[in-house]
Structure formats: structure tokens, C-alpha cells
Design a protein around this nucleic acid. Structure first.
Lengths: 324, 324
DNA sequence: CTGTTAGCGCCTTCAA
DNA sequence: TTGAAGGCGCTAACAG
């Protein structure tokens, strides 16, 4: 910056003003400075600027698994709104490990992000309380447990309830359930919705056809094969997320069945699989956008004027794909 | 830091030493400092540290479309190696726009990343030359054009050649080609491989069955329907990337055909689609890992000891899925 | 409209 | 083994 100032025969302060679009600079001076900037290929040091200004212009985003399209879409939504507000996003991936999550969050805090959006890996988040004291935090896709923060959720209960109701309306009575760990909020809520849809018709699900604690495509496929091969095989399966649905699709295909499937999260090619498929769909980008709006709102409001904790629920839609 | 120093009754310098694991601090002092750190919830300011040290410990990653699993996997590979080396990754998404790419790259440079990995949106990269003068850069998935940098490529030519050869070996003679824009390196190379496989058998592809310049699932689906509905309909289609293959799958399904498909990039559920599918697969994570290794190597070597430009080629494997 | 001074939080260097 | 001085690059606040 000194070099630019020297070349333009002004002080560093004037260069700073020009680069900041400060109005109080004469046209001629501004032009001289910009010429010098271009000639030297000068680029303002944002690190020094952050230090001086006391804000980095960054927000942190911590997701569990970027390879899952749900999270990459969410990340895109976050980037979109952050960019609108002139902020950058520092992205971290926990690989579903709570201890890594704690480290990454600490690391982001050390880099002075102005706030954080976290998709927590575990079911409770006490380990984030410390960080929360120094900056706002928003949870995405899971509600806070053990801490008090804003969050953006999918309507897990109602989506599961509605999809299950459709299967029941189709005449299915022997439904199976393939779920992620019940300790997770989404797992519990979606199971609750599954159950509620039964109750509304005066039915009760058969626990023998329930498998929970599934964590990836492989475990889901195994569980699906197990249920479908059992004595009281279901005619339809409800799956709590896209990985599990895909495992179930594999199992159904391998066994040569035409079992009806219902599941959370839309996925590509769902429409051309040729299986009867009921999908609870929602806009992952929108979760990211909403979370970012909540976060930036808190950042701009600073510590004063503390609003109560907010909870935004993103609606779901049920989509039906037919057999070929 | 001053507060910690005061509480521990030492100077700020000593606190700095403790936090840096500098050996020249007595055990008793170190313990006092750490206690004070914990009590105050103190966290070192990495921004100030970067400013003083002259290196941010970050590398930039610029991808065209994070929603494409290819890029999210690549990003994970980059994160993995960067983390091993104690560096963080600043991720940006260009949405395939070259002007946005230039801005994002400039922005990363302003934030003093120590190097960058870029998946360029366009076919030439002169606009990156300026930035390259101040830090190392590695291109991923596309070779440099208009600039001179290290790069990591997929074996586009050979993958396309081999997959095409397999279709020909199956007895197909009327192959169609659905390609991304020919101005893109991958588009050109994959088409070249498609052509070469024909030549090796003394055949020549029929240009009437070639459609290029496809950019997403929708355009690919339309093109596939067009070719498959035309007068000299192919019995098999070669697709240059996962979006195009998925468009082709849609078209084939909608038309109720059993056309054999071959394409670049593996995708989930490819094995359960029930169509004859030949996929050129490769490890997207590995591209990210290799690119990061090249980059960090250059960063550590500094400006001196300039090695010549390197080009790493990641191999491909051909996978075959059968009809049901 | 432009310049000077001072300091953001940390660490290198030198001195004790 | 510890501390004091000084500066990384920038800009707010105050002068002129």
C-alpha cells in the first residue's frame, strides 16, 4: 500500500480511502491511485483489514458429510445468501465425528468467523456452548439439545406422517420401517410420524418390521433384505433418509421384488427407477438460506437487543413416482 | 492475551510461547498460563497471527458446481490432504461463470490464501495469470490453456476409448455420442477417445448420431430423445459425463427402450437401474488429494527452486452393469 | 480534500 | 527462562 501511495504521490490513507470507495477523494487523485494500483498489481490485504476492523467478514459452516447431496445443497444455499450480504463462507466437514466437530468449531472461532452454522453430528451439543458465548450460532437440520440457539428444521414429523398415510391409503397394511439412529432428532421425529399415520387409522405398526440405527447404504441394504426375507414380510417400506432409501432400492432390486418404497429426501433418477416410490421432498438450499438469514440477522444486531431463540421449519412435499 | 498474561502474572510474550509449544518455558509457568487461558476462555486470534507470520495457513479451492457430486468428492479429497498438512480450505463455487471465477480467485488472493486449486469454468484461463504471479496454483480436471500451471487430469481419452471399445466388442455398430461443449478439454478428449476406438476397428462414427454442447440433464435428455427418435437411431449411446448419462437414462426410460449406455463418471444406483450400462469410473477424491499434494509442495518450496510444470493423470476403470 | 498518529493482536528479535 | 520493543498492513479519529 505504501508503494502504491508513493507511486501515486499520495499518502497510504488516501489509497485506503480510494479502495474503500470513500466519497471524500477528488476525482483526479482517485484516478492516479487506481492507475498505480493496477500498475503494481496491488491487492488489499484482507487479513490486515480484518484485524483492524475487528470483523473477518466470514461465517463458518460445519456439515457432517459433504458427499451427501443434502449437505452440498445446503452449503450452496448458505453461500448464496452470504454472498448477497458480502460475506464469505468457511466450510468444514466433520465426517460425522463429534470430537472433530468440536475442534473444527474451535478452529473457525480462532479464525474469527462472525458466526457459525452447524449441522451437529451428535444428538446433543453441550460442547458448543463455550463457542456460543463469543458469537451467534445457528443449527441446521437438528434442534438444539443442551444449548439454546436458533435452528432451521425440516418438518420431519409431518413429512413422515403424510408419506406413511399415502401408503396406508393405497391399501398397504404391513409396513416396514428402516430408520437412522433413534437418538437423532430426525430419526425420532420421522418414526413418530410413521406411528402417528397408523394411529390415525386405528392401526399399530408391527415392531418386527422395524429396523433402526442404520447409518449408511450398506447397513440399510442389509436391514432391508433382512426384513423383506423375514416371516412377516412388509408390502411397503418407509425409509428415513436418502441413504437408507437407496439401500432399500438395492435390496428390492436384488430380491427381484416390487415392494413399494417411501422415504425422506428426493434423489436423482428416482423417477426412472421404475419402482413405486413415495418421496418426502424439501428444499435443502432453502434450509441453508434460512439458516444464513437467521445468523446474519444476529450478527448485525450484535450482542445488544437479544431476541428470543427462533425456530424455522421448512415444509415438505410428498412426490409419488410410479412403477414402470 | 494481555488479560491471560495478567492473570498468570507473566508477560504476553510468555503466553504466546506457551500457546505455540515453545520449549523455553518452565513447567510451572506453563501450567499457570494454561490455567488462565482456560479460566478466561481465551482463544488465540488467528487473524492477527496470520498477519504477523505472513501466511494464513489456508488454501483456496474454486469449483464450478458443488451440487455435482464429482466436485464435492474432489473437495473432500482436498480437505483431507490439507488437514494432514495443517492447512484449512476456503471453498468457493463459481456456478460455471468465468467472470465470477475471476472475482472469487481475486477474493481468495486478497484473503492471503497460500495457494489455490481451481476447476476452471471456461476453456482458457488467461484471467488467472495475474493471480498466479503471487501464489502457486493447480488446475484440476482441466489442463491449463493460456497459462502455465501444474494440473491433475483424468485419463479422458483412454477412458472414453476403452468404454467405446467395449460397446463395439459387444457388437454394437451404430453408436451415438452425447457430449459436453467441444471447446472444453474433457469434451474434446472424450470425443477423441470415442473416435479412436472406432478407428482401431477400421470404423468411422456417423456424425448424424453425434450431439455436442450439452450442459445439463435437461439438454442431454432432449438430445437423447432426438437421436433415438431419428432415422438412423443408435443401438448404444456414449455420454461424456454424469449429467449427460442421467439425461440419457431418462430418455431411454421414457421411450421404453433398452438402449445400451456408456458414460463417464459413476453414480449412485447405477447398478440397480436395470439398464445395460458401461461406466468410466475414477476416484474424484484422488484428484483432489493429488492436486493438494502438488500445491502444498509448491507452497513449501517457496519461489526459489522452481520445478518445471507437472501434470498428473488419474487412471480410469471401466465398470459394467447389466440389464435386469 | 488529504495527511499524521496510533493501535488492532500477535510474534521475531534482542536484551536481561 | 522471561520480558521489552517494534512492526506485520490496514484504517478510525483527528488534524490541517
Amino acid at each position: 500500500m505504501r508503494d502504491v501511495a508513493q507511486l501515486a504521490r499520495v499518502s497510504a490513507m488516501t489509497v485506503s480511502r480510494v479502495l474503500k470507495d470513500d466519497p471524500g477523494v477528488s476525482g483526479a487523485t482517485r484516478k492516479r491511485v487506481l492507475t498505480a494500483v493496477k500498475e503494481l498489481g496491488y491487492r488489499r490485504n484482507e487479513t490486515a483489514r480484518s484485524l483492524r476492523l475487528g470483523g473477518s467478514g466470514m461465517i463458518g459452516l460445519v456439515v457432517t458429510n459433504l458427499a451427501n447431496p443434502f449437505y452440498s445443497r445446503l452449503a450452496l444455499g448458505v453461500q448464496e445468501v452470504a454472498a448477497e450480504q458480502g460475506m464469505r463462507v468457511l466450510l468444514s466437514n466433520t465426517a460425522e465425528q463429534t470430537d472433530r466437530e468440536r475442534d473444527l468449531v474451535e478452529d473457525l472461532a480462532s479464525h474469527r468467523v462472525e458466526g457459525m452454522i452447524v449441522v451437529p453430528a451428535g444428538s446433543r451439543q453441550e460442547h458448543l456452548a463455550q463457542t456460543m458465548t463469543s458469537m451467534p450460532m445457528v443449527l441446521a437440520a437438528r434442534p438444539p439439545a443442551g444449548i439454546d440457539t436458533d435452528c432451521v428444521l425440516v418438518d420431519d414429523f409431518d413429512g413422515a406422517r403424510e408419506a406413511t398415510a399415502q401408503l396406508l391409503a393405497d391399501g398397504h397394511r404391513d409396513l416396514g420401517f428402516l430408520g437412522n439412529p433413534p437418538a437423532l432428532y430426525t430419526g425420532a421425529e420421522r418414526f413418530r410420524g410413521f406411528w402417528a399415520a397408523h394411529e390415525e387409522l386405528g392401526l399399530e405398526p408391527d415392531e418386527h418390521r422395524v429396523r433402526r440405527g442404520l447409518v449408511d447404504i450398506a447397513t440399510a441394504e442389509a436391514a432391508a433384505k433382512d426384513v423383506l426375507g423375514g416371516p412377516s414380510a412388509p408390502t411397503a417400506l418407509f425409509c428415513t433418509n436418502n441413504r437408507i432409501t437407496q439401500g432399500a432400492v438395492r435390496a428390492v432390486r436384488r430380491l427381484g421384488l416390487q415392494t413399494a418404497l417411501a422415504g425422506f429426501d428426493n434423489f436423482e433418477l428416482a423417477d426412472v427407477l421404475g419402482l413405486p416410490l413415495t418421496i418426502v421432498s424439501y428444499d435443502a438450499d432453502e434450509i441453508g438460506r434460512q439458516a444464513t438469514r437467521l445468523l446474519i440477522d444476529r450478527i448485525k444486531n450484535g450482542t445488544e437487543n437479544q431476541q428470543p431463540t427462533r425456530r424455522v421449519v421448512v415444509p415438505t412435499t410428498v412426490i409419488r413416482y410410479g412403477a414402470l
